[in-house]
Every structure is written in C-alpha cells, then in structure tokens.
C-alpha cells in the first residue's frame, strides 16, 4: 500500500484511491470519422510498462478528483503528481 499525494488533499493512503489506467489518452473529438482500427486503438490499446508509467488516479474516497500520477511500476515509486490538463513533467 503506497501513499499518494493528492494534488487537492495531500498525502493519503492508496486505499482511498482508484486507479484509472494509462493517462493522456484523449477521447477523439469526432469518433464517427474514425475507421474501426482507429477507434479500436483508442478503445482497447493500453501500455503496460514495467518502469515509469503515466497513469490516471481518482481520489474516490476523498475529494473525488481525477489527476495524473507518474509511477515506476517496478517499485511503485511515485515520481510526480499533477492535475488534469497540466503538462506532463519530463522524466
């Protein structure tokens, strides 16, 4: 159980949060213009990296806010936390 520094509430236990998968996958603005393959790319394809991964987390049992976390999946070290819409840090 790791600790996550919610950008709105501060440091809390992992059990208060819900993981939301890979970050920075933007929903296409015009889905109907996409081919099946292009839509499938958005819908299904996610990375599962051993190492530094950019992911979304939700403070589900707290402020209910979504935000981004940069986490090393090999040891759970959190390298950065930033709000939705903010530019991802270079790591």
């Amino acid at each position: 159980m790791f600790l996550i520094n919610c950008p709105f509430c501060g440091e809390r236990e992992q059990s208060e949060f819900k993981a939301g998968g890979e970050a920075h996958i933007i929903r296409p603005k015009q889905p109907t213009e996409l081919s099946d393959d292009e839509w499938a790319e958005y819908l299904f394809m996610r990375k599962n990296i051993k190492g530094v991964q950019f992911e979304r987390w939700n403070h589900a049992h707290g402020c209910r806010k979504w935000f981004n976390v940069v986490r090393d999946t090999s040891n759970d070290e959190i390298k950065a936390v930033y709000k939705m819409g903010e530019k991802p840090p270079t790591i």
Partner: peptide, 13 residues
C-alpha cells in the same frame, strides 16, 4: 457517478 465525474473532469472540463 464515478464514470460521469471521470468524463466531466477529464474529457469535457
């Protein structure tokens, strides 16, 4: 609720 919040906060702010 959580899904609707997700869309509101991340896709349609």
């Amino acid at each position: 609720l959580s899904k609707l919040e997700d869309y509101l906060q991340t896709e349609w702010p």
